[in-house]
Design a binder for these strands. Structure first.
Length: 636
RNA sequence: GCUGGCGUAGCUCAGAGGCAGAGCAGCUGAUUUGUAAUCAGCCGGUCAAGGGUUCGACUCCCUUCGCCAGCUCCA
């Protein structure tokens, strides 16, 4: 997320007089300042006394840079508390992260829940002491000596790697840390802290390296914001697709097939409507749908490069003394389809779409609900085109992504460009050309993006679209990947205008990404209250007593004849109970029929999540639902 | 895969070295019901699986499987 203009403007600009601490001119709540000297800027403590009158911008926790400082200071506070209680813990790094911060410690025993409570308590004690954050500059060799004496081997390593000749350190109480700063003036600022959880981690993220214990925590400038944040975390848990999937009987994941999905009728219906809507869209955009085998001869995977680059993520089976690979991707199948006929430059671009069921062997520890599975359906396509068509195709694809995600109301989407990884096929020249084409398309689209150097697929660079789930975790969904290597690997060519044989460029792309993952995000995004067009049941018709059954049944029939998904709840239960259960199932509309409605030839329509009802004729009610379906409306 | 936690009825969860518990759901009956839970009765369990310790294990120990959080990796 980038800093919004509104919050950046909230940081006050000022001129600080020479010789006086910046704090003297700082507005209430400021935690640090940005000092401008000429064209360069640097973040500094409020205790700094500028030598000459200085232009400064004060940072508060309301702007992203200020919050960063605030959380970073909080991380020092956490480490100080841990060192108090566990002097043998050596500290690693403690950066701010979205929603809080963490600190890694080298310690033999994992922290218990009780440890975390004690740590939080000690943090609060240190807050009450209002201990100042004091900056000290040491020569590099002296700093190394100091941390060696303290036994802080991680810090010694960091200083050796990162520090310049003069090493900036901060002291807060007895806690001394190598750190650039800046920091809040004293611990009293950090009055709303909460230790959240702990888990294992590794020094420098290296799974073969030294195990560490990581403590996650968060902090806010006041108690109210902290409570609000903790509330959001609770709300996210309520939206968890695993929970809603179970409650609403959408899908199952069983021990009998780890990482694979059993779609229940309600969930299957949603998936089918998703796919139908994608198919209609693709038809309009000139795609041709294909389906290729799940299991292909091993030689295909040798040819495609998967055996060399993707083997550890593949399932293999042996039958009739021959080895087969279960497809983790659909590309080789598409390549074989392309090769099955002669192709002319006039045919391009050829857009083959495939809702391909892919299997990938994922390590057990990464499986999670529908977002990380071992078998999933990709809404894949392979576009075979000429070099000069790449730019327009990619621009067209970005438009398609925007269209689909916009329709579901996803707004927090991050675009990332990933470039050549270490393990890759193809020449430097083709990689440069492919990366250049993507950059051009990105520029043309006007969307901002992040750069992920070295994160591309082994066969080409890619543009990924990430969407956040309810818990704030980011998931890759749509992806657009260029591939200059499939054509040579599979001897693909087209007859060019000049009569020569030319290799086509392949664009792999998925819009939903994995249908399973997209489904999960949709559930969390809507908290299970799916839009009418895709909801498993669109309306529940509820007769009040037995004598209203016939009228209710007629209403159901009339609505079903329009193609609407309507259920009848004619159990001999109270209306309150039926309404409650329909609300819990997030059914968009509840149509109650009692004496008044029978007399008027109407239904009393209650809309999901709203009190009160409207008296409508069955025909009007049907019209309204049809309109919501046709518009793919997000309401109600 | 690694670190830690967890696995008890269909679901949510309590319990605990000595007869296995609750609420909801389900079934049966009564209630004919007006917008988020009507009442009563009944049924429901190899306490994840395998091994070990013990007079006795659901409980303690070991192994395996699965789930959860994080790490690493990714659609």
């Amino acid at each position: 997320m980038s800093p919004s203009p509104a919050s950046a403007a909230s940081a006050a600009e000022a001129v600080a007089p020479a010789g006086r601490p910046l704090a003297a001119s700082a507005p209430r709540g400021a935690v640090a300042a940005v000092l401008r000297s000429g064209p360069s800027e640097r973040e500094v403590d409020l205790s700094l006394r500028p030598e000459a009158d200085a232009e400064v911008r004060f940072l508060t926790p309301a702007d992203p840079d200020g919050l960063h400082v605030f959380r970073h200071s909080s991380a020092h506070l956490l480490a100080a508390a841990v060192k108090d209680l566990f002097p043998e813990a050596r500290y690693g790094i403690g950066p701010p992260i979205e929603g809080g911060f963490y600190y890694d410690f080298g310690i033999s025993e994992p922290f218990t829940a009780e440890d975390l409570r004690r740590i939080e308590k000690r943090m609060r004690e240190l807050v009450r002491k209002r201990l100042p954050f004091q900056r000290e500059l040491l020569p590099k060799d002296e700093a190394i000596r100091v941390f060696e004496d303290l036994g802080e081997t991680f810090k010694v390593e960091l200083i050796r790697e990162k520090a310049g000749e003069s090493v900036s350190c901060y002291r807060v109480g007895d806690f001394f840390d190598f750190c650039n700063g800046p920091h809040v003036p004293h611990t009293g600022y950090l009055r709303a802290v909460k230790v959240l959880s702990s888990s294992g981690a590794y020094w420098k993220g290296d799974a073969a390296g030294i195990p560490m214990q990581r403590i996650y925590a968060t902090s806010f400038p006041d108690r109210k914001q902290l409570v609000k944040h903790l509330h959001r975390i609770e709300e996210a848990k309520r939206r968890d697709h695993r929970r809603i999937g179970k409650e609403q009987r959408l899908f199952l994941i069983l021990e009998e097939a780890p990482g694979q999905v059993f779609w229940l009728p309600a969930g299957m219906g949603v998936v089918n409507r998703l796919l139908d809507s994608m198919r209609a869209r693709l038809d309009r955009r000139g795609y041709q749908e294909i389906r290729t085998p799940l299991i292909l001869n091993e030689s295909v995977w040798a040819r495609s490069g998967h055996l060399d680059h993707y083997r550890e993520n593949m399932f293999f089976i042996e039958s009739d003394e021959r080895r087969f690979g279960v497809k983790p991707m659909n590309c080789p199948g598409a390549a074989l389809v392309y090769r099955s006929d002669i192709r002319s430059w006039r045919d391009l671009p050829l857009r083959f779409s495939e809702f391909g069921h892919c299997h990938r062997f994922e390590p057990s520890g990464v499986l999670s609900g529908l977002t990380r599975v071992r078998a999933f359906t990709q809404d894949d396509a392979h576009i075979y085109c000429r070099l000069d068509q790449i730019r327009d195709e990619v621009i067209e694809l970005m438009d398609l992504v925007r269209e689909v995600y916009g329709e579901f109301g996803f707004e927090d989407i991050q675009i990332e460009l990933s470039t050549r990884p270490e393990k890759s096929v193809g020449t430097d020249e083709t990689w440069e050309r492919a990366e250049g084409a993507l950059l051009e398309a990105l520029a043309a689209s006007g969307d901002s993006h992040l750069l992920n150097p070295g994160d591309g697929a082994f066969y080409g660079p890619k543009i990924d679209f990430h969407v956040r789930d309810a818990l704030g975790r980011s998931h890759q969904c749509a992806t657009i990947q260029l591939d200059f290597s499939q054509a040579p690997a599979f001897d693909l060519y087209y007859a060019a205008e000049d009569g020569t044989r030319q290799p086509p460029v392949v664009i792999h792309r998925a819009i939903l990404g994995s249908v399973e993952r997209f489904f999960a995000l949709l559930i969390e995004h809507t908290a299970g209250a799916l839009p009418v067009w895709i909801a498993p049941v669109q309306a529940q018709v509820i007769p009040i007593a037995d004598r209203h059954r016939d009228a209710a049944s007629e209403a159901v029939t009339a609505l079903r004849e329009r193609g609407l998904r309507v259920e009848l709840d004619d159990r001999r239960e109270k209306v309150g109970l039926k309404i409650r259960q329909a609300e819990l199932r997030r059914i968009p509309f509840m149509a109650v029929i009692g004496d008044r409605e029978v007399d008027a030839g109407a239904v009393a329509v209650r809309t999901r999540g709203r009190r009160g009802q409207r008296i409508l004729s069955v025909a009007t009610f049907g019209d309204e639902m049809e309109r919501l379906v046709a518009d793919r409306s997000l309401a109600p």
